[in-house]
Design a protein around this nucleic acid. Structure first.
Lengths: 126, 126
DNA sequence: TGCGGATATGCAGGCGAATCGATGGTGTAG
DNA sequence: CTACACCATCGATTCGCCTGCATATCCGCA
C-alpha cells in the first residue's frame, strides 16, 4: 500500500480518533489501517518485541532471523514494512544494519485507540 | 484465522505487552495479530467509528451500508469479523440487528501498545 | 398461512501479501 | 586484490482476504 509510506513520520496519523466524535473520513481510515496493517502480523510483532528487548534497544538482521525462524530475505522484508510505516528506524554501521523503535510511534497509535479518556476535545461540539 | 475467534472476549489478549520486558511468544503474537488484523481495514475502522458516533452508540446494518458505500453482504461480513474479534457485540431486536462497541475491548489493545511508560509491573488495585 | 423486508451465508473472482531461493551490492578482513 | 559476511532486492509461488451476486434464514405483519 502506497498510502502507508512513511505514514507516521510524515503524513502523520489521522489526527482524529476513530472512536471519538464524528465518524472518520475514508482517507483517514485508510491511513490508520495502513499503519495497523503493518502491526497486524505475528512476525512483525515479534520483531518489534525482539528489538525492544535487545541489549541496547537495537538489533541487526542477523540477530533476528534465528529467533523468528524465518529466512533472512523475509525478515528484511518485514523490517522494511515496519520502517516504512514509521515504527522502526534504520542505522547502518559497517556491514550491519541496526534497527530500533521509533519512540513515539506506537504510542501515537495507542492514543488514537484510547479515546474514552478525557482527552481535551475542548471544542463545545454540543 | 480461527485463532482469532472471540480472542478478546474469551481467550483474552496476550496479557504481556509486545513492548515490555521479554520478547513475546509466537502464540501471543498470533493472538494479538489476529485482533489487530480485524482493526487493520479501512471499512472496519469506519464501521467502528460510525457505530460509536451513532445516536445511542448502536447501529443496525441498514444504517451502515450507505455511508460506507459497500453492499449489505459485505458490511455484514465486516461486522462479523469485528464481532468475532471481540470488538463488537450484536443484539437482535425484531428484524434488526444492532451492533455496539464492546467498551473495554479497544482500550485493552491500546494498553498493550502503551508500555513505553514505566507502568508499574504490579497491577494497581482499583 | 403467506408475504415482504432485514440479515446472514455460500460461492467465486481478483488483488495484495508472505515466504523463499537466487542474485547483486557493499564493507571488512586477510 | 581477493574472499567472505551482511543485507537488500528480484522473481516466483502460494495463500489469504475483500468484494459482490445469488441465495438462504429469520421475523413481523396482514
Amino acid at each position: 500500500m502506497d498510502y502507508v509510506g512513511t505514514a507516521l513520520a510524515e503524513t502523520s496519523l489521522p489526527a482524529i480518533s476513530p472512536l471519538a466524535g464524528e465518524p472518520i473520513e475514508r482517507a483517514d481510515a485508510e491511513r490508520l489501517a495502513g499503519v495497523l496493517k503493518a502491526l497486524a502480523d505475528p512476525a512483525r510483532l515479534r520483531l518489534l518485541s525482539l528489538i525492544q528487548s535487545a541489549p541496547e534497544g537495537e538489533a541487526c538482521v542477523c540477530d533476528l532471523t534465528a529467533p523468528l525462524g524465518l529466512s533472512q530475505p523475509t525478515v528484511s522484508h518485514h523490517l522494511r514494512i515496519l520502517t516504512e510505516a514509521g515504527l522502526l528506524e534504520r542505522e547502518k554501521r559497517g556491514v550491519w544494519a541496526y534497527y530500533r523503535l521509533v519512540p513515539t510511534a506506537i504510542g501515537a497509535i495507542a492514543d488514537l485507540l484510547t479515546p474514552p479518556r478525557k482527552r481535551a476535545t475542548k471544542k463545545a461540539a454540543r
